[in-house]
Simulated assay, not measured.
Amino acid sequence: MRAKAVLYAIFLVTAVGATQADAQPINLTGKYKCWQTCRYGLVGGNVYITQNGWDINVLNEAGESSRAWFDWFSPTRIWFESWNTGAVYSPDGMTIQFDRGTLWQRDLGLPPPPPRRRR
């Protein structure tokens, strides 16, 4: 009976661990704009994020780059290595709020022009 309980516990731990490890993070790849507490006062500056699975490369509004990665223990947190700071992102990936107050918002660009009317 005891061996059966141990096997069940191992199965349960393995199943939960596999589910968390296999979960794909949100895709943050894209262009953002800095709107608050920007480096060197560059409000509205372009920010670029390139993501490959759990690894992230970032170029901020001042042209400074950093590697970043998702926090294993908090599903909406990112750690930026070169800047020694963390941030949280919104569930839809539209905003990134840094611990020090910087705010980035995804730049979707201008909407497409309306279709031309034919005469």
Rank of each mutant, 00 (worst) to 15 (best):
R2H: 13
A3T: 04
K4C: 08
A5D: 04
V6F: 07
L7H: 12
L7F: 13
L7V: 12
Y8A: 14
A9C: 11
A9K: 14
F11S: 05
V13G: 01
A15E: 10
G17T: 09
G17L: 15
A18T: 15
A18K: 12
A18S: 11
T19S: 08
T19M: 00
T19H: 07
A21F: 12
D22I: 01
A23L: 07
A23W: 03
P25T: 14
N27W: 13
T29Y: 12
T29K: 05
T29C: 11
Y32M: 06
Y32R: 06
C34H: 04
C34G: 07
W35H: 15
Q36K: 09
T37R: 01
T37A: 06
C38F: 09
C38N: 10
R39D: 09
Y40M: 00
Y40V: 00
G41L: 12
G41C: 12
G41N: 05
G41R: 08
L42Y: 11
L42V: 05
L42F: 14
L42W: 04
V43P: 00
G44A: 08
G44N: 03
G45H: 07
V47S: 13
V47G: 11
Y48T: 15
I49M: 09
I49S: 03
T50L: 10
Q51Y: 13
Q51S: 10
Q51F: 14
W54Q: 01
W54L: 10
W54C: 00
D55Q: 12
I56F: 03
I56L: 12
I56R: 04
N57V: 05
V58H: 03
L59K: 15
N60E: 12
A62K: 13
G63E: 01
E64V: 09
E64R: 10
S66W: 03
A68I: 11
A68E: 04
W69P: 01
W69Y: 13
F70E: 02
F73S: 00
T76F: 06
I78W: 02
I78Q: 01
W79P: 01
F80Y: 08
E81N: 09
E81S: 07
S82L: 12
S82P: 03
S82H: 14
S82E: 15
N84G: 15
N84P: 04
T85N: 10
T85K: 06
A87I: 07
A87F: 06
A87S: 11
S90K: 00
P91D: 09
D92V: 00
D92P: 01
D92Y: 05
G93H: 06
G93N: 08
M94W: 14
I96G: 03
I96L: 03
I96H: 11
F98P: 01
F98I: 01
D99P: 00
G101D: 01
G101Y: 00
T102L: 10
L103V: 11
L103C: 03
R106W: 05
L108Q: 04
G109N: 02
L110N: 14
L110T: 13
P111V: 13
P112L: 02
P112W: 04
P113M: 10
P115Y: 04
P115H: 08
R116N: 09
R117K: 10
R118F: 09
R119M: 05
R119L: 07
